[in-house]
Amino acid sequence: MRFAVISFPGSNCDRDLYYAIVDSLGEQADLISYTSTDLSKYDTILIPGGFSYGDYLRSGAIAKFAPAMKSVKAFAASGRPVIGICNGFQILTEAGLLPGTLQHNTNISFISEWEPLEVVNNKTPFTNQYQVNQKIKLPIAHGDGNYYCDDDTLKSLKQNHQIVFKYRNNPNGSVDDIAGIVNRKGNVLGMMPHPERATEKILGGQDGLTLFQSILNSIKVRSLS
């Protein structure tokens, strides 16, 4: 199983994701440049957190034009899994791969905490190893994590079971406590919390590792069927 982690100028969680895959999950990963366009040898694409292009203008606004993003769109269209974490989630919404947008936290400040979450939907390639309604804890670290979408979008997110993770004590003002969503097809996940920061006991918890194990499982299941 091979994961690609796309590094944009200013990404700062790219190496963290790489280590989570290689050291904790025990699978293969490459850090690839935002200029790469050939994603053919990868099973899953990871878009890391950080501050691509300094988050200037709007979080994720400049990164969406990177050459790699065209290939990410094609990759997603083929039904293979794509995950955007934190800034990666912001890039995916800016690029139109996920609905909605992420605005400033309601308290204006950056928030870095271990945050209690609930797994709302465990029937995705990213969550099949969690129990439904399982309570988990993952670190958040963002200034623009306040998920917003209009009422119609929210309605369709609910109808299509696209809401995957919810905050238990909404820290940033997100609509409907949303912490992570998938696209309609279910193969593109965007989430503000950082699963890659919770894959080792020494770092305070391993609830994030389950997410990566879920991907492994879903790809294995798919290749069997």
């Binding site: 969680c13 963290d16 870095s112 890659e196 770092l203």
Partner: peptide, 14 residues
């Protein structure tokens, strides 16, 4: 104050 600082990026913070 501390919650405004990202204290866990680089995934080494114990």
């Amino acid at each position: 104050v501390y919650r405004q600082y990202d204290s866990r990026v680089q995934t080494n913070t114990v």
